[in-house]
């Protein structure tokens, strides 16, 4: 029977794969951004899974701090990408 860390870690890898596939296959920019965000969640899951040592033991706080940083950077990058897309579309209109 797999333990939780293995289960969620493998889920993270599958999510990163699904995200990578969609980021390449989809042609719409916002869909690609969504796909990259799903990939990011997959990577975060792998990191947090390696920090988990079972229900009765304290987890490793270092990957936790890394992922916290990662979530904020991911949303900042998404916002910048969306603003860039909007600027592109505006310049297409002119």
């Amino acid at each position: 029977m797999p333990d939780a860390a293995t289960l969620y870690g493998l889920l993270g890898i599958v999510l990163a794969g699904l995200g990578a596939h969609a980021a390449i296959v989809q042609r719409d920019s916002i869909r690609r951004l969504l796909a990259i965000n799903v990939m990011g969640v997959g990577v975060f899951l792998v990191l947090i899974a390696t920090a988990y040592f079972g229900p009765n033991q304290d987890p490793d706080p270092i990957p936790h701090a890394l992922v916290l940083t990662g979530i904020v950077v991911a949303v900042a990058a998404t916002a910048l990408a969306l603003a860039l897309l909007r600027a592109f579309e505006r310049s297409d209109d002119e």
Binding site: A4, A5, I30, Y52, V67, L82
Partner: peptide, 26 residues
Amino acid sequence: RLRAPDIALAEAAIGSGLAGALLLAA
């Protein structure tokens, strides 16, 4: 579930909430 409550809070507020608001606005 994975004993990362700090990240759970950040994910709900930033990763899901604000990112979702950003995408919907876009």
